[in-house]
Design a protein around this nucleic acid. Structure first.
Lengths: 202, 202
DNA sequence: CCCTTATCTGAACAATGTACAGATGATAGA
DNA sequence: TCTATCATCTGTACATTGTTCAGATAAGGG
């Protein structure tokens, strides 16, 4: 029967994916606070306790979703950067600026996702070095900065702290804009200041 | 009787304060997620529904607590800055650096407070200009930057975007460290980069 | 001293996270 | 093809939560 067919899918390991996908939908709409395991189970058409075979509790589901969002962000950034190819200095500069913009756009479009990603649910427990190696978005930043140096757009002297400064400025303005403490227009101004600070030649 | 004495206090307008104070205690210990109105009421020795005469719902109590924490932060920063008096360039530079450090220390000591302050519960709804005028911590930053210019430690050219850059760098690193994406040591490095970017003379 | 008004209580309700005993269906071996 | 095993899911239950509302209680002014 058709009703049994639906259930069969989850016997093949789709429930874990379905849980995250549905959780994503709810968080996207209403944020994390109001996320209900029962609503998710209901939406999927499964009993409230079925989720407990894949996640020990509600928090774990939110963690899993959060970490998958980091992958999504990395995908999005890589897609956008691919639109600006070329080894020229100009292209490298544009890629760097776009990288910041994608971070900001991602957060503005889905503030609830942004909040989840940097909430307690996604606290990093592994070593800092390992975490950054596994963070593809961070690696993209590293490559962008390398490109700037190689194309002669950025001085080697500032390179050492360039990741730190870039991420801090971009994340800081984004976070403050999402929480309503700064205006959207401030983001481009902050990018200007950042490029100036990094000594990026125009 | 003594038990009645306790209740009498709340007839004189102390319950609103007690609610926020007790909520503060719980958030400090366990964060916002697990904050329970019933536990708070129980701790105070009042019925679960008593809170509803002062706050329309749980969210409003969290908002009130969050905004009061901004005042606390401002108080803390002002107290710390008062420890470095004097109109010298050297004093102005030290005050500026200390201002960043107090922001960071506050967040590290009480990460749950920091999270609440920049969560959905404390979203700014008023106009940006008005919000920043009422934000005493922001005003302290403005004054510190003015001092830097007046004492000749900072160039007027970078003054225009100095608040934006300072707050973004300090808030960005702090937020990323609290969420485990950067290491504590990165904060001082970020401050160094910021001072360099602002052209603060050593 | 009473009466109005602010303040708080008690009981109730629906929703939630979570635990656990059992049912159900897939799959591998005979 | 039948059967036994095992992962997967259901049903029920329980404590806790936010929230509502009718009524009790105390305070303060006339």
């Amino acid at each position: 029967m058709t009703t049994a067919r639906v259930r069969d899918q989850y016997h093949h390991g789709d429930l874990e994916v379905a849980l995250i996908t549905t959780a994503r939908k709810f968080v996207k709409k209403n944020g994390l606070e109001s996320l209900s395991l029962r609503q998710i189970a209901n939406e999927i058409g499964v009993s409230p306790s079925a989720a407990y075979h894949y996640f020990p509790d509600r928090n774990s589901l939110l963690s899993a979703l959060g970490f998958s969002l980091f992958e999504e962000l990395a995908d999005y950034q890589e897609r956008e950067l691919a639109k600006v190819p070329g080894a020229s200095a100009r292209a490298a500069r544009e890629r760097f600026r776009n990288l910041g913009r994608t971070y900001f756009d991602w957060a503005i479009r889905e503030p609830h996702f942004f909040n989840l990603m940097f909430s307690d649910f996604c606290l990093i427990e592994s070593s800092m070095d390992q975490a950054r190696e596994e963070n593809r978005a961070y690696q993209t930043l590293v490559h962008c900065l390398d490109d700037l140096v190689e194309t002669g757009s950025m001085d080697k002297k500032v390179r050492a702290s360039a990741e730190l400064l870039s991420w801090s400025v971009v994340h800081g303005t984004t976070s403050l804009i999402v929480s309503g403490h700064l205006a959207s227009e401030d983001f481009e101004r902050a990018l200007d200041s950042l490029e100036l600070a990094l000594g990026i030649r125009k």
